[in-house]
């Protein structure tokens, strides 16, 4: 396979991909195109088919139907060792009996790359993940974050066309996870490899991705850039899964509005011109430090969450709002119409 076969063609092209486990359809006729160099995220709850899709791209599962093309070559029936992809596993899957160095060199070793070159490339890779000098350690002597970076180096050192990451940060604590998100993103920019990233964490997906696909019940419900998916969810499921489900029904149609787009109007305060305004009662208030979450029951039916920054207010002031009559407003275009077809799904 030539390195740049089918230049301009998408790096990954998936058509009609289907996988069943017994009676369960894990992946149901999925189509995907991922251009070269993109940071692409597959987001969804567990059992939604995102990991199975990733495993079929890697070659760990054989699809029942459909094709997978990598850089224009049909790899659907190729074993993992013949595919130009590498994987970072959720549990890292570092070989416990090998040193860090041997782990990173493994892919090169089984491909009979000469020892000198192996050394050099492994050193480069370890340097990139800031683990120079850790080569002689065993995986058991590393922290979770360090293991994660070894797993990354072990994959990248093979210079794959595509890097698959299966919830790679799932086992890390919040702070480390946020650091690693930034680091992963910068490494991806540096090496320019296509990243396909699987996660159930919507914040992670929104932060890191160029584009993301939201999986539900084995299907892709929506695919697009993070802002588009977040601000204009196309279904109730997406509205709820990527953010808070803020759904109201007006004139027989269902809408969703993001809580931070809604403004609470104080007594006597003038709404913005052309804004959508509705009266209601504050049913509950949650003070969360930098922001406050208001649950407003609307007079015309339904409930909305409103998120307001605590620019000047303290906790006692915001909590006093509970039970008061208020008006909510948002600018036209902030709300999204949810396809009625999806209304009953879940």
């Amino acid at each position: 396979m030539a390195p740049d076969a089918g230049a301009g063609a998408p790096d990954i092209s998936v058509r009609g991909l289907t996988k069943r486990f017994g009676d369960v359809v894990a992946v149901d006729s999925v189509d995907l195109d991922i251009p070269a160099g993109e940071f692409f995220t597959m987001l969804g709850p567990s059992g939604s088919g995102k990991t199975t899709t990733l495993r079929m791209i890697a070659g760990f599962e054989i699809p029942d139907e459909g094709t997978i093309e990598l850089a224009g070559q049909d790899v659907s029936r190729l074993p993992p060792y013949d595919r130009p992809v590498n994987t970072v596993f959720q549990d890292y899957a570092l070989f416990p009996h090998m040193t860090v160095q041997a782990n990173v060199e493994y892919g090169l070793m089984v491909k009979s790359v000469k020892k000198g070159e192996r050394r050099e490339r492994a050193a480069h890779a370890l340097e990139m993940v800031r683990l120079s000098g850790f080569g002689d350690r065993k995986p058991s002597q590393l922290s979770g974050g360090q293991r994660q970076r070894v797993a990354l180096a072990r994959a990248i050192v093979n210079r794959p066309k595509v890097l698959l990451l299966d919830e790679p940060l799932g086992a890390l604590d919040l702070k480390l996870r946020q650091e690693m998100q930034i680091e992963l993103k910068s490494i991806q920019r540096e090496v320019g490899i296509t990243f396909v990233y699987v996660t159930h964490d919507q914040e992670e997906a929104l932060t890191m991705s160029d584009r993301l696909a939201v999986f539900n019940n084995g299907k892709i419900e929506q695919i697009g850039p993070p802002a588009e998916v977040y601000e204009h969810p196309e279904s109730e499921f997406i509205a709820g899964f990527v953010g808070v489900s803020n759904v109201i029904e007006r004139d027989g149609r269902r809408y969703t509005v993001r809580p931070e787009k809604i403004n609470l109007l104080e007594e006597g305060e003038e709404p913005e011109p052309r804004a959508h305004v509705e009266p209601g009662v504050v049913r509950d208030v949650q003070y969360v430090g930098p922001v406050t979450r208001y649950h407003v029951t609307l007079d015309r039916g339904g409930e909305l969450q409103v998120l307001a920054q605590n620019l000047e207010e303290g906790s006692s002031e915001v909590l006093e709002v509970k039970g008061r009559r208020v008006r909510v407003e948002w600018r036209p275009g902030q709300e999204s119409v949810i396809d009625e077809r999806e209304g009953g799904s879940e």
Partner: peptide
């Protein structure tokens, strides 16, 4: 890292590898 990642084609087919692939396709 300055080098642009390039995928290296897999090494030549050996009987062992062919058998592995056969087994992969026929679990």
């Amino acid at each position: 890292m300055t080098s642009v990642p390039v995928y290296e084609p897999p090494p030549q087919e050996s009987p062992g590898r062919r058998l592995s692939t056969f087994f992969y396709r026929h679990p």
